Simulated assay, not measured.
Amino acid sequence: MQSRQYPLRHAMLAISEGIAEFTHQRPQARNALSLELRQDYVDMLGIVEADREVRALIITGSGGSFCAGGDLRSIRGLLDDPDPAVREAAAMRRRLTDIHGWLRRLRDLELPVIAAVDGAAAGAGFSLALAADFVLASERALFSMAFVKIGLVPDMGAMYALPRAVGMGLAKELMYTGRRMDAREAHQRGIVHALHSADTLPGAARRFATRFLDAPREAVALTKLALNGALESSYDAMLAMEGQAQGIAASTAYYRDAIGSFLRGERPRFDWDRAARDA
């Protein structure tokens, strides 16, 4: 499988051996979510969605920072713009609507999405991490709903995702105060799946992603789709979703081959525990 690199504006997308790695590459600004980086997400998702060989996506930062939030220099420029239409509430709403388009695609991507967080994940950076299926973090990672520090409300899906991740009480505390949560607390609270040193985090994230290479793509995608709506759905709706998804999964070649292997006494193609031992 050929390795490919896609240099973008403020990020790099690399695809190798079934794993896509999207790296924020503006360390001098702590990988703030610039207009260019937002467009990079749009372009990256288009590439990854179209590539059936990709089985997992890693999102990470460079230079010891994941993403420090919105680009305050760009925001300052908007505030100083002489055109009042640029500063009105409707303009901010339109900008967020544009973000919501690719953010929903990221959340619903039919692949496991792994955020490898080293250093700051603040404001929009924290929201980005919450859009992933799994968060792996370095021991020096910091998480903060920093929006309140500049007089804004949490956005980019944080008001939806954070209460579901940690409960309403802690979500209110983090959002009202903007306090920093270190990696250890984030792990204890269930935001972070696993902790690693800063040096070993990139390799650990790739090994974790690699364990999905032999997973049934359709079954994982259908499970993710169902779980993303599970907390808003009734019991009957989820039973119906299970039935529809199972019908699709049971029609795949993967399922047919897996049943044959089991009946022949062969090892399953996808075995998470075995993959962990091998890794």
Rank of each mutant, 00 (worst) to 15 (best):
R95D: 15
L96K: 12
L96S: 12
L96A: 15
T97K: 13
T97Q: 14
D98C: 10
D98W: 07
I99S: 14
I99W: 11
I99L: 11
H100A: 15
H100S: 14
H100M: 15
G101I: 15
W102N: 12
W102H: 13
L103P: 06
R104H: 08
R104D: 09
R105L: 14
R105T: 13
R105E: 13
L106W: 12
L106A: 15
R107P: 03
R107V: 11
D108Q: 12
D108F: 07
D108G: 05
D108I: 06
L109E: 08
L109M: 08
E110D: 11
E110M: 05
L111G: 10
L111E: 06
P112Y: 04
P112L: 10
P112D: 09
V113Y: 10
I114Q: 07
I114C: 10
A115F: 04
A116L: 09
A116H: 09
V117P: 11
V117F: 02
V117T: 06
V117R: 02
D118N: 13
D118M: 04
D118S: 12
A120P: 02
A120T: 01
A120E: 08
A121L: 05
A121H: 05
A121I: 10
A121N: 10
A122I: 04
A122T: 06
G123F: 02
G125F: 07
G125W: 09
G125S: 11
G125L: 09
F126L: 15
F126S: 04
S127L: 14
S127G: 15
L128T: 10
L128R: 07
A129F: 06
L130Q: 06
A131I: 08
A131F: 00
A131G: 12
A132N: 06
A132W: 02
A132R: 04
D133N: 05
D133H: 04
D133C: 07
F134K: 03
V135I: 15
V135N: 12
L136Q: 11
A137F: 04
A137T: 11
A137H: 08
S138M: 04
S138D: 03
S138I: 04
E139T: 14
R140K: 00
A141E: 03
A141D: 00
L142C: 03
L142S: 01
F143L: 08
F143K: 10
F143S: 08
M145I: 00
M145Y: 02
A146D: 07
A146P: 05
A146W: 01
A146Y: 02
V148G: 00
K149V: 01
